[in-house]
């Protein structure tokens, strides 16, 4: 693990501490050991991450907009007296590398319109879709592309 990414994580944890304590300088008596402990355990639990930070800035607005639409979509279906749903279970072959990117994809999918990840197997994501008539496949592919860029990898081709 590179020194730079340890430094970045240290800054992130210090930022969280600063937020929690409202920037109280006296709190660092506890804050410094706490941040150090959190950092050590974090490095032990998550040895490497290769998030591309500037891609993150592109991903966030995309995700916020799509998850807002996800909420609106499901709220509409729930309140509509006819309850327009046609659920189905669907296996999506993952082209992302295993590990963090696949888990990130699984978690993202659950907050996007009409999709809920129900099982993560080796290179396959079981997705429960609320409306099997919609274009969820295109959506999943788009998300996968973006997650790949976020982690600085490319998708496998079959």
């Amino acid at each position: 693990m590179s020194g730079l990414s340890i430094l970045l994580r240290g800054i992130l944890f210090s930022l969280i501490w600063w937020l929690l304590t409202d920037g109280d300088t006296a709190s660092w008596w506890i804050g410094v050991p706490a941040v150090a402990l959190a950092l050590i355990i974090n490095i032990a639990l998550l040895p490497s991450s290769n998030l591309v930070w500037h891609e993150f800035l592109i991903f966030v607005p995309f995700f916020l907009l799509r998850s807002l639409l996800g909420g609106v979509d499901v709220a509409r279906r729930a309140i509509d007296p006819r309850m327009p749903i046609a659920p189905a279970l669907f296996e999506y072959p993952l082209r992302l590398p295993a590990g963090m990117p696949q888990v990130f994809m699984a978690n993202t999918v659950s907050l996007l319109p009409g999709t809920l990840s129900a099982e993560l197997c080796t290179n396959c994501l079981k997705v429960h879709v609320l409306d099997s008539r919609g274009g969820f496949l295109a959506e999943l592919e788009a998300v996968e592309q973006r997650v790949a860029r976020l982690f600085g990898t490319s998708l496998k081709t079959f």
């Binding site: 996800g70 909420g71 499901v74 309140i79 749903i85 319109p113 129900a118 609320l130």
Partner: peptide, 24 residues
């Protein structure tokens, strides 16, 4: 989200309602 929890037919659809609507 709560309406969905009560109206939707099974555990999967209810999870859709709870997770997405409550998040927003």
């Amino acid at each position: 989200g709560t309406v969905g929890l009560l109206r939707f037919p099974d555990v999967y659809t209810r999870l859709h309602a709870l997770t997405k609507a409550d998040n927003v």
